[in-house]
Structure formats: structure tokens, C-alpha cells
Design a protein around this nucleic acid. Sequence first.
DNA 1: CTACAATGTGTGCACCGTTCACATTAGGCG
DNA 2: CGCCTAATGTGAACGGTGCACACATTGTAG
Lengths: 207, 207
Amino acid sequence: MPQANDSYHHGDLRAACLRAARELLEEDGSAGLSLRAVARRAGVSATAPYRHYADRDALVSSVAAEGYRELAGYLTAAHPAPATPDDLTAVAVAYVRFALDHPALFRVMFAEPCDPGNEERVEATAALSEYVRGIVRGTFPDADPDALSTTVWALVHGLAFLHLDGKLDASTPEVVADQVRTAVHALFTASPVVSQAATAQPERARA
Amino acid sequence: MPQANDSYHHGDLRAACLRAARELLEEDGSAGLSLRAVARRAGVSATAPYRHYADRDALVSSVAAEGYRELAGYLTAAHPAPATPDDLTAVAVAYVRFALDHPALFRVMFAEPCDPGNEERVEATAALSEYVRGIVRGTFPDADPDALSTTVWALVHGLAFLHLDGKLDASTPEVVADQVRTAVHALFTASPVVSQAATAQPERARA
DNA sequence: CTACAATGTGTGCACCGTTCACATTAGGCG
DNA sequence: CGCCTAATGTGAACGGTGCACACATTGTAG
């Protein structure tokens, strides 16, 4: 049973490190996320975190994995079981809102190629990817789920990143939401074409 | 007249730093891009670069600005004066190809919110943004240029990033290109709707 | 030719990630 | 209960980093 005492043994350093990392990320951005700062905030010596994380990257990957799960929470909260294009649009809006609510975290999640060695991270991203594909499959049964989910994910992901880079008008959340709705709506009116194009292209990859 | 001698004064340290930074970026990724390593590679003391760049961020911003210009070169090379949806699709393919050809550079370009204080960088990004808007305006005269260029940029940017994160099949350049073409094509078949939706939404932003 | 501004050097400081030997403690086993 | 081992936390140390500072060198304008 973990306890955050002031005794020699912390009790649950692993969780405390994660929490401290999240706080530092929100306060100073990814620049302030140092292993030593995490240790300081957790009230522990600089090298103690190495008992729970192989290196800095492992910690960051854990933070990223937590971010993926939180993002999934945003999406399911927007609509628990999306079945119509409007439902899917609501999910898309939630995706961009998550990015704007947690900009530093979102950047960390996609800053580097996902380390294939980190099981927790791979699992979290796979779950998210599968979740998106599932929604698309349910919403557009006639479309190629892979192709369409890729397209819609890319569109929403791109909107999120352009917003993070300040390249789009993000004055109010409503402006952002409208932008996302407009863009996604444009895609959906063409969804039958996506289906058709994806299934009628035999010359995809010969290698 | 600059000269890369072995004399006390380097001749053109600024350009040499930029070149060294680019090399380090391609060799070791953004992790290896340290000011000291740049100085070493340029054959100069660790603090010499400070005569030409205020700090590490300034160097990185310069590299990013160079990247923006190079990206613009890719795009214009794909089609000097895009006038049809197919032309625009070719430009989109070139965008993603640039990201895959220069993954570390592309990440640097979009890793942090663009520093508004760095004039060179702001200028380069503005030029790129305006270029995209111009293409869209020429290709789809009836559409809202802002809305459509945002959408198509987001879609392509998202595809590029998902590829960089290894979340999409990038086995061969042709597979990637097909993917981009399919996604962009899907958008374009809906472009009249974008135009209609964008102009028929008076409740955009009241603030 | 000389003074000055531009440019490069060296030292030093604080911080970082990481390793290693060591201290402390929890929990199982007698 | 008491002991032993594995888990967990500490401290010093090493090489690397960004950056500020005083100083050295040199191109160039007057």
C-alpha cells in the first residue's frame, strides 16, 4: 500500500514522478521537463527516478502514454458511441480541443517517432488508432475504413498542429470548433468517393 | 568577401554554422543539434557562434526558416503554377515527400510555436502560408480561399506528421503518394460544399 | 598608420543525464 | 519474533550542455 510519507521510502515514486512531469510540462513546456526537476518536485534525490524509469525517454514515453489515454477520454466523452457523421464531427472537435487544452503534452505525444520498445506507449497508441478506425467503420460502413480513418485523422491532426503553431485563428473555442466542423464536413460529403476510389485502385503497391 | 580559411577569422561563420546544424540534424536527429557540436564541426571555439546567433533558439529558428524556404522549393518544383485540382494534388504529394525526405528538419520546423520575435522565421512561414492560399485561390476560384486552404493544408500536414510518427504505411514512396492523392482527391470532390458551407455561415466569429 | 568595431578564444558557472558504490527499509522466511 | 534479501533511495562523480564574461586578434575606416 503506497503512501507519500516523508520516510526514506517514498511509497509511490513512480506515480509521483508522472504527476510532477505533467505539472512541469504545463508550467514550463517541454523545455522544463528534466529528470532532475521531476526528482526535486517529488522531494527525492536526483537519481531516485532511475529505480522506476530506465532513462529520461522512458519517463517521457510514460507521460505520452498517459496523454494518449486522456485523449481517448476526451473523444469518448464527446460521444460514447458515434454512429452518424455529426457524432464523428463532435469527436473531431474534441480532438482539437484536447490539443489546445494540453499543448505541451500533445507535442510530447507526437514529438518523436514512437519508440517501438516502449510497450505501454505502443499499446496506448494502438488503442487510439483502433478506436478511430472503429468509429469510422460504424459511421461510414460502405467506405474503406483504413483509408477514410487515415484521412479524417490526418485532417484533424493537422488542424490541431496548425493551431498549436499559432497559424490559425484560435481566438475563441467556438471559432476553433466551427473551423473543425467545416473542414470535417467537407470531407464527409465526399466519403462515398473515398470508398469508391480506395476499392477501385488495383495498382496500389506492387513492391 | 567571405573565405573559409584557417585564419583567426573564419570568414563566414554564420553560413558554416547553418550548414553544420543541418548536417548534425540529418545525422543524429534534433537530439544531436547542440551549439557546441555545431561550433566543433565548424572548427571554431564553443562560444564563437554567439557572435552570429543570440542563443541556441536563434540558430534553430534560422534552420527552420531555411527549411521553410526549401519546402517552398519542393512545392514549386512539383508544379510552378498550379491551376487544376490535379496540379494541387501534385503539390500536396511534394509536401509529404519533403517531410519524409527531411524528417528531422520538418520536426524542427514545427516543434515549437513560431517565435514571433524571429523575423526571418516569421517571414518564411508567412510566405509559405500565402503561397498555399494563392494556389487554392487559383485552383478553386469559387471557394472561400481561407477555409479551403486551411483544410487542405491541415490534411496534408496531418498526413505528413502521421507518416513521420510511423503510424502510416510508408513502405515505398509510391504508396505514400497514392495515399496523399486519395485523401486530397476526397477533399476536392467536396470543394463546392466547402465554398457553400463557408459562405453560408454568418455566425462564424462575433468577437 | 592608428583607432575602432567586428569577430573569435578561454574560463567559468549552473544545469543536465547517467553511472556507481553505498545506505536504508520492507517483507518474506525461519 | 529476528534475520536476510531484494527493493528502493542517496551522494558523489563524470562528461556534456547553454551561456556570460573578460580577453585576444584582425579587418577596415579615418
